[in-house]
């Protein structure tokens, strides 16, 4: 594919346009897809995080809840994403083309991944720190908000990075059910290849997906750094 990428501009005018040519010809819709792709990747992570916090908290506090959470989330992850997208309308009563289907399905995957991460993060607060916080008079909720959660931030953001990158790739599959996002480029590339291989839309889709994933990942890394100033000092004590 890289070799093809190099060859395309050389083919010039009479052949179909190369990567950049394809992009400038379809600029508006590609940017529209990129925007939707980003939105469909991020929104489920945010929803998933909000749902995962109470579930993870429960699992870190109740001995029976943790194994249950691990089994259920493992099971959820084995459902093929396409099947989930297709099943959503009958569960939610939405139309088949409604992007809500994708958001809900990906939120489920995110919860499956993050709830366990949150439980692990909250469970990894050092015992003496937890004891001391309780002994100083934090109520259980205050302790969660001001001690346990801040200390679990590095673990949770590590999970968020995996979730957001996984979502970028899962969103692309939703093109097969007609949701507008970068996956459309793969569908187009496939359709345009009926007479002979035509790679520019496919390569463009891959490049934009990778760039999007890297940018979102970087955002999470920066947020993590901003929330955990104490960890930067440990290296040079």
């Amino acid at each position: 594919m890289i070799a093809a990428l190099g060859r395309i501009p050389a083919q010039g005018g009479q052949s179909p346009p190369g990567l950049l040519g394809y992009f400038s010809a379809h600029r508006t819709e590609v940017l529209h897809w990129l925007w939707w792709h980003a939105w469909l990747s991020v929104l489920p992570v945010l929803i998933g995080l909000v749902v995962s916090l109470p579930l993870g908290y429960l699992a870190s506090r109740r001995r029976w809840a943790y194994p249950a959470l691990v089994s259920v989330s493992g099971l959820l992850y084995t459902i093929p994403s396409l099947a989930l997208f297709v099943a959503m309308p009958s569960i939610l009563g939405t139309k088949i083309l409604d992007p809500v289907n994708v958001v809900v399905a990906l939120s489920i995957y995110t919860v499956a991944l993050l709830a366990r991460v949150v439980a692990d993060g909250l469970g990894a607060v050092p015992e003496d720190v937890a004891q001391a916080a309780t002994a100083m008079g934090y109520t259980p909720l205050q302790r969660l908000a001001k001690v346990d959660l801040p200390l679990a931030v590095p673990v949770i953001t590590a999970g968020l990075r995996v979730a957001v990158v996984a979502n970028v790739s899962l969103v692309a599959i939703a093109a097969t059910i007609g949701v507008p996002e970068l996956g459309q480029l793969f569908t187009n590339g496939f359709q345009l290849s009926s007479t002979g291989p035509y790679y520019p839309p496919i390569v463009l889709g891959i490049v934009l997906c990778v760039v999007l994933a890297l940018v979102l990942d970087l955002v999470i890394v920066l947020v993590n750094r901003a929330l955990t100033p104490w960890r930067r000092t440990e290296a040079h004590r």
């Binding site: 050092p126 003496d128 720190v129 916080a133 200390l151 104490w230």
Partner: peptide, 21 residues
């Protein structure tokens, strides 16, 4: 319990300081 504990100083073996503060 929380109110009681705020009125009692508590020191433990490995300090138990909050690492993020």
């Amino acid at each position: 319990p929380a109110a009681l504990r705020r009125g009692i100083g508590y020191v433990i073996q490995h300090s138990g300081l909050l690492p993020h503060r």
